[in-house]
């Protein structure tokens, strides 16, 4: 299990990545996170919803209501231009973060 502290700073990044190509809704996003991470990270509903709200306020995503094949009304989210910019920045930030942390990770124990 991974520490949610580390992941917290990158939840927005994960969601933005999933929204890059097409809009999506709550459960689909949580399901894709689970699948992509081989169930190593399962996002809680409350975490996801608070991320949506935060990102909406920050202008990184927009919500609109739509209905799926079953006709159930759902809130969909789509990425904004500002969201794409932010995503790119976060990707760069992660590269640096990764490099920094890597320096302190011991791979071979003597």
């Amino acid at each position: 299990m991974i520490s949610s502290d580390v992941i917290r700073g990158y939840i927005d990044t994960m969601i933005l990545y999933l929204l890059l190509n097409e809009p999506s809704y709550g459960y689909e996003i949580s399901k894709r996170i689970r699948e992509l991470t081989d169930e190593k990270y399962i996002i809680k509903e409350t975490t996801l919803y608070s991320a949506f709200k935060r990102m909406e306020i920050n202008g990184h995503i927009e919500s609109f209501s739509g209905s799926e094949t079953y006709g159930k009304p759902r809130t969909y989210y789509k990425i904004t231009e500002a969201g794409k910019m932010y995503y790119k920045e976060k990707c760069k930030e992660w590269e640096i973060t990764k490099e920094v942390i890597e320096k302190f990770i011991l791979r071979e124990w003597k």
Binding site: G26, Y27, E45, L48, Y49, R74, T75
Partner: peptide, 13 residues
Amino acid sequence: RAKKELLTMMEDK
């Protein structure tokens, strides 16, 4: 709204 959306997510799951 939060409650409604959380419910939808839970129901989907």
